[in-house]
C-alpha cells in the first residue's frame, strides 16, 4: 500500500516536473525570440529581409551591416557610423559610474559609521531622489547646466548622471555598511586611523559585492539612458542611444533594417558584457545586505 502510494507520488512528481520544464523552456524561447530576430537579420543582406522571411536563417552570411553600422552609416547628417558615439558613451559612462559609486560609498560610510543629528532624515531625502521621474528635472537641470557653462558637454552629462545616481548608490552602500561591525571602526580609531584611512583600508576592501551591484546598476542605467542624452548632449557629446535613434529614425533613403539590427546589438553589447562578467556578484551583493544581521 505504502509502496504504491510512493510510486504514484514519484510519477506525479515526474509529470509535474516535465510540465514545469516545458513551460520554462517555452518562456525562455519566447524571450529569446527578439534576440534571435536581431542577430539573424543583422547578418543578412537587405534584400533577404525586404523579401519577407524575417524568421529565416540567412542564405548569404555577411558582416557588412555590422561594419556599416559601426563606421559608415548615416547618423544625422554625417556618415560616421555609431563609432564616435560609442566613445562618447564610454567617456560619459566611465567617470559617471566611478564618481557616483565612490560618492555613494562615502555617503554610506558617513551615514552608518559617523552618524550625526538628522542623518536619517538626510538619508530619507536622498532615497526620495530615487523616485523622482526624469522628466521633472529636465528643465531645471538644463538651466543649471547652462548657468554652469556645461550645456551640451560630456562633463555636463556626467554631472547629471552622478547627481541622479547618488540616491541609489548611497542606498546600496548604506544598507551594506549598516551591518558592517562598528567595532572594526572603533578598533581602527584606537589604532590611529583617520576618517579616510578607515574608509580606504578597512571599509572599501570589504565592499566588493556591493560595489559590483552599484557599478552594474549605474552602468546599465547610464548607458541605456536616452532622455538625458537627447536633452542635454551637444552634437559632439551625443551618446550611443541617441545616435542609434537617429540611425533608425532617418527619414530619407532606404530603411536598412539589417544595419539597424546590427546597430541595436552594438548599443546593447556593453551592458550585456557587464552582466556576463559580473552578473553572479550582482545577486550575491544584493543578498549580502539583506540576509545578514
Amino acid at each position: 500500500m505504502s509502496v504504491a502510494t510512493q510510486d504514484t507520488a514519484i510519477r506525479t512528481g515526474r509529470v509535474a516536473r516535465t510540465l514545469i520544464y516545458l513551460v520554462l523552456l517555452l518562456f525562455a524561447l519566447f524571450y529569446l525570440l527578439p534576440l534571435y530576430v536581431m542577430v539573424v537579420n543583422s547578418v543578412k543582406p537587405l534584400n533577404e529581409i525586404t523579401g519577407g522571411g524575417m524568421m529565416n536563417l540567412p542564405q548569404v552570411f555577411t558582416l557588412e551591416p555590422w561594419a556599416k553600422a559601426w563606421s559608415s552609416a548615416q547618423i544625422g547628417v554625417e556618415p560616421t557610423g555609431l563609432q564616435p558615439y560609442f566613445w562618447n558613451s564610454i567617456k560619459m559612462v566611465v567617470p559617471a559610474v566611478a564618481i557616483s559609486t565612490v560618492l555613494g560609498a562615502l555617503n554610506g560610510y558617513v551615514l552608518t559609521k559617523w552618524r550625526f543629528r538628522g542623518d536619517t532624515i538626510l538619508f530619507g531625502l536622498m532615497l526620495f531622489a530615487c523616485f523622482i521621474p526624469f522628466q521633472i528635472v529636465l528643465i531645471p537641470m538644463a538651466r543649471m547646466l547652462g548657468l554652469m557653462g556645461m550645456a551640451g558637454t560630456t562633463q555636463g552629462l556626467v554631472l547629471v548622471h552622478v547627481v541622479y545616481g547618488i540616491g541609489f548608490t548611497t542606498l546600496y552602500f548604506r544598507n551594506y555598511y549598516a551591518v558592517f561591525p562598528t567595532e572594526l571602526i572603533r578598533a581602527a580609531q584606537i589604532d590611529g586611523a583617520g576618517f579616510f584611512q578607515i574608509f580606504w583600508r578597512i571599509l572599501l576592501p570589504s565592499s566588493g559585492p556591493i560595489a559590483v551591484v552599484s557599478i552594474i546598476w549605474q552602468f546599465t542605467n547610464i548607458w541605456n539612458d536616452f532622455l538625458f542624452g537627447a536633452s542635454f548632449a551637444g552634437a559632439n557629446s551625443q551618446p550611443m542611444t541617441v545616435a542609434l535613434n537617429n540611425l533608425v529614425q532617418a527619414s530619407h533613403g532606404v530603411k536598412e533594417y539589417n544595419v539597424h539590427f546590427a546597430g541595436a546589438i552594438l548599443a546593447a553589447l556593453p551592458t550585456l558584457l557587464v552582466y556576463i562578467v559580473a552578473g553572479r556578484y550582482f545577486v550575491r551583493g544584493l543578498m549580502a545586505g539583506s540576509v545578514k544581521g
Binding site: L184, R186, A187, A188, Q189, I190, A193, I202, P205, S206
Partner: peptide, 20 residues
C-alpha cells in the same frame, strides 16, 4: 583626547580583526 593619542589598546568582544 582622540582614542589613538591616549596610548591605550582595546580588545573587543567580537575581536574586531580587519577581515581584509
Amino acid at each position: 583626547v582622540h582614542p589613538s593619542r591616549r596610548n591605550i589598546a582595546m580588545v573587543f568582544q567580537s575581536y574586531a580583526l580587519y577581515p581584509n
